[in-house]
């Protein structure tokens, strides 16, 4: 992306990572992608009682080109899916996606022909937030978790290494439906 990608790994890169992470997370601008009920809870999270402005996020950018975070709030229907993808593609790196609510995370209670069963079928999601709809406090919790993720995001060669490690772990992991014996 920029000069921070070219730094060699070491003390310098780590400091730049911390600084860049801090800058990015403190003013993460969300893109308006409210679709259904979760959109109303997203709006109340921006409202005075559960203020998002204290995290620098009250500015919901209409244009995806100016936004960092796409909060997919609500059920994504089959007709809306190409639009979601197009808006995601129009966002500029670095970008993150928070899928808010069960409908965006996994299709929710609508396991049928009309709803995409999880927006991660279309776009890569960084953090999932269950709830129907999630309370504003839950949304703020998810956003703060995402902030932690962003703060510690590796850059440059560290990032390449991290991506490789994540891919290896995912290939070796047990599939969810095979994770048996957890209740003992």
């Amino acid at each position: 992306m920029g000069i921070e990608e070219k730094l060699p790994s070491g003390f310098m890169l780590t400091s730049v990572e911390h600084l860049a992470g801090y800058m990015r997370k403190s003013s993460l601008w969300p893109a308006t992608f409210g679709l259904a009920c979760c959109a109303i809870e997203m709006m109340t999270t921006g409202a005075p009682r559960y203020d998002l402005a204290r995290f620098g996020m009250e500015v919901f950018r209409a244009s995806p080109r100016q936004a960092d975070l796409m909060i997919v709030a609500g059920r994504v229907s089959q007709k809306m899916a190409p639009v979601v993808r197009q808006v995601y593609d129009q966002m500029v790196e670095p970008k993150w996606v928070l899928s808010m609510g069960v409908c965006a995370s996994s299709g929710g209670m609508f396991n049928n022909y009309a709803i995409v069963q999880g927006v991660d079928h279309i776009i890569p999601v960084d953090i999932y937030l269950p709830g129907c709809p999630p309370r504003p406090e839950m949304l703020i919790n998810a956003i703060l978790e995402l902030h932690k993720q962003i703060q510690s995001m590796p850059l440059g060669v560290n990032r390449v290494a991290a991506v490789k490690a994540a891919e290896a772990a995912a290939l070796a992991a047990t599939p969810t439906s095979q994770m048996k014996g957890l209740l003992r």
Binding site: L35, G74, R75, M109
Partner: peptide, 29 residues
């Protein structure tokens, strides 16, 4: 049609009481 959810068809596979949880989400305000 960008928010068509197939609520009516889903209700065909639920009891009358479970149907309430579907129709509640039609107009979310």
């Amino acid at each position: 049609g960008y928010l068509h959810t197939g609520i009516e068809k889903s209700m065909e596979f639920r009891t009358w009481t479970q149907g309430v949880t579907f129709c509640t989400r039609m107009d979310y305000l």
